[in-house]
Amino acid sequence: MEHGAVIKHDETKGPKTGAWRYMHPEVDKEKCIGCATCVPFCPEASIEMKENKADIDYDYCKGCGVCAEVCPVKAIMMKKK
């Protein structure tokens, strides 16, 4: 019990917001041109560039679809999962 409710960041105590998803973004690695436009707009900071391709961390992705919307080459498709 932290006195005065002063708390420390602890990732293990954080909710894996991926559970919120009902629409699921999928990156088409061929289409992706590695421009990383989607990366800073993702509200969950869940997108990283791996081998210059967008890679989504589904632990936290809430399925909002912003990445699909901002992708200049429509390399990300929202799928029902």
Binding site: G4, A5, V6, I7, K8, H9
Partner: peptide, 17 residues
């Protein structure tokens, strides 16, 4: 040693604080 002062504590923890 970053800490957060003043979080939200709801039904499951406010009482204990």
């Amino acid at each position: 040693n970053p800490v957060s002062y003043g979080p939200v504590a709801l039904q499951n923890s406010y009482f204990e604080f």
